[in-house]
Design a protein around this nucleic acid. Structure first.
Lengths: 110, 110
DNA sequence: GCATGTACCTCGGATTGCATAGTACCGAGC
DNA sequence: GCTCGGTACTATGCAATCCGAGGTACATGC
């Protein structure tokens, strides 16, 4: 993985993770599997798990445990009201930055 | 500045800086002044100067010195052929990530 | 009993953003 | 000739976090 792509992802994991459980539930391994298929968002378990732990600790996620059909107990995460607010804020911030950078890239030195 | 926005910027400075000198020249202070006006890309001198130094050291930028109308000698930076390639690669990578994330954000848990 | 797939978690190195502080250059006005 | 404000860059150090490598554990099929 090229180093600058690693850097580009910083701060994006959190948004991507929150997005996977917008309006529903998701568990760690499933999130990793899902993001693995999205170009540019291939995060590993060692990236996703700490983020989930932090978000839960900060009160943005609620946890529900449920047995897995094959494996250890799954821990399903869901957005709390605070988590939803955070997600909306981050989405707005992301759109702003994305739009600004697009303009800059198209405009050249204009 | 919220912490996640700081992280979001990591890796974006480099692309933003390269963009400001696409097809032309730019000097440090001028780059900072220009980016300061773009929402979401307000980087400070202590962020931009090290990036310029690193990019020059890695061979992505060429330097030309020219007296300033008022102040110390300006150092104009220009993309080398390698720098242009790097810039194009980063732009592609950025567009990929941006598109993926947009899809994820709009699609919800679809 | 062993391999395999699922599921969760931790540790440590490397990278980088940015606040703070400092150096130095130049022209204008007195 | 001295100060002052704007310009241009450098140095130091902390905080954040990505991710490779490694560890534990459950279930099924052979």
């Amino acid at each position: 993985m090229s180093s600058w792509e690693t850097q580009l992802r910083k701060g994006l994991v959190e948004l991507a993770v929150l997005a996977t459980m917008d309006g529903g539930e998701a568990y760690g391994y499933g999130i990793v599997e899902r993001l693995r298929k999205i170009e540019g968002l291939e995060f590993t378990e060692s990236t996703v798990y700490p983020v989930l732990a932090r978000l839960a600790r900060e009160g943005f996620l609620a946890i529900r445990a449920e047995p897995s059909p094959a494996g250890p107990t799954r821990r399903y995460y869901r957005l709390t009201p605070e988590g939803e607010r955070r997600f909306r804020e981050m989405t707005r911030g992301w759109r702003t930055v994305a739009a600004s950078l697009s303009t800059l890239l198209e405009g050249g030195r204009g």
